[in-house]
Design a protein around this nucleic acid. Structure first.
Lengths: 220, 220
DNA sequence: CCCTTTCTGTGTATAAATTACATAGAAATA
DNA sequence: TATTTCTATGTAATTTATACACAGAAAGGG
């Protein structure tokens, strides 16, 4: 019976316990640029470093629920679609204690959540994806992995969550794609491909204030 | 400063701790069928249920290291390529205590690991993927998710780990693909596609005992 | 030993998907 | 009202994926 010894650990009540944290890459699209929400730590370790918003999993809550709680406290963000990315378990990834982190990403509209302070010195801020500084812990790695997963998802489906307003032009959607994928796309081919996915509905409304008077679309 | 309260949990030393388990879908290919290694529990909860091999993460070990330890104890399997699949955190997924599980999959050659007992009543056994019974905990779900991920990976790259012997024919490889993907493939188109991936090397050796005398290949 | 069976190995024609590319019309601005 | 800058659209070329048939080699049976 010793063969199944290791299995018992799944039930034994004195097994090693450890803090589980959730970290979330909150992506937003604003001023035609993909942005990421970061928070600045006010305590050690990594005091004054920017990191991904996150925190410990709470007793009686799942990981997504814990994320929602963290984000809700920080920004008022709630009920957003979360995508699980990966789990990080390196022993020395937290300098003080053992922490295993599970990362998620979320896609939101920054303008829906007034977390952007007026001044530039702040403990919570949207960063352009190209301007992300060195982050605390292994969070640059988490961000890279989340972005990869987002790109993969975007290439396959048409998932852009809450990144755009309800009504948007095809050009705005294309610019979102170009921003996330980091490559330029042909306008006509993009329109063709997106429209034949049959996930958008034209509204017959025109966007004012823009030359050409582009048509507005909405998600089906 | 209350805004960043939740963040502090990542460092506070009295945060909620919880058991972290790793579970592994060990896939093998034998007798031309995709199989999965299951173990039978000898203790409650889910006594006498089959489950995925797994166990608690150990102090000072990463999750992959913990998996390797579990598998090494069970089967002598070691140093295998693991792919992380997902993390499961439902509160009631373990009936006795809170356990968060991270699942992985691995691809091995069953014949390398003599875990198959002579008789059919056993605590560790390879199951054909179509004959998997109702498993303990939420392990049917974990298995489904792992299989999906394996299929996705197989469709994109040429990843079949240790599922085949060092030397194999293209037909054997094709049958592996067909088994995992659950669909039939055209022989000529499959050969064309696989060969132009430039990941196999022909050996000029012929497989004996098979009509037609097919050529053996090896992974580059 | 020969005949039959069953496997291997190969190429081409067709369809589908992707890419490249240019012009005419509408709205804004000066 | 002239100019600018955007929108909207179709087709040809290329690449990729799919469908499909026959000749030769090895094994097995009589």
């Amino acid at each position: 019976m010793s063969k199944i010894g290791p299995l018992d650990t799944a039930v034994s009540l004195d097994s090693y316990e450890c803090t589980i944290a959730v970290e979330c890459c909150v992506f937003g699209f604003q001023d035609n640029v993909l942005k990421i929400l970061l928070v600045k730590r006010s305590i050690e370790p990594f005091k004054d470093y920017w990191v991904l918003p996150g925190g410990a999993m709470n007793e009686g809550k799942t990981l997504p629920e814990s994320i929602e709680e963290v984000l809700s406290n920080l920004t008022g963000i709630r009920k957003i679609a979360l995508e699980q990315v990966a789990c990080y378990s390196n022993v020395e990834r937290h300098p003080i204690k053992r922490v295993v982190s599970v990362s998620y990403y979320a896609l939101v509209k920054p303008e829906d959540y007034p977390v952007i302070p007026k001044n530039y010195i702040s403990d919570i801020m949207w960063f352009e994806i190209g301007d992300v500084p060195e982050l605390g812990f292994d969070h640059n790695r988490l961000l890279t992995d989340s972005l990869s997963k987002l790109r993969d998802n975007l290439r396959q489906n048409l998932v852009f969550g809450e990144l755009l307003p309800d009504l948007f032009t095809l050009k705005e959607l294309q610019e979102l794609y170009e921003n996330i994928l980091g490559e330029r796309l042909d306008r006509r081919n993009f329109r063709k491909k997106i429209l034949q996915m049959d996930l958008l509905v034209p509204t017959n409304e025109k966007k004012a204030g823009v030359k050409g008077g582009p048509e507005l679309y909405r998600k089906k």
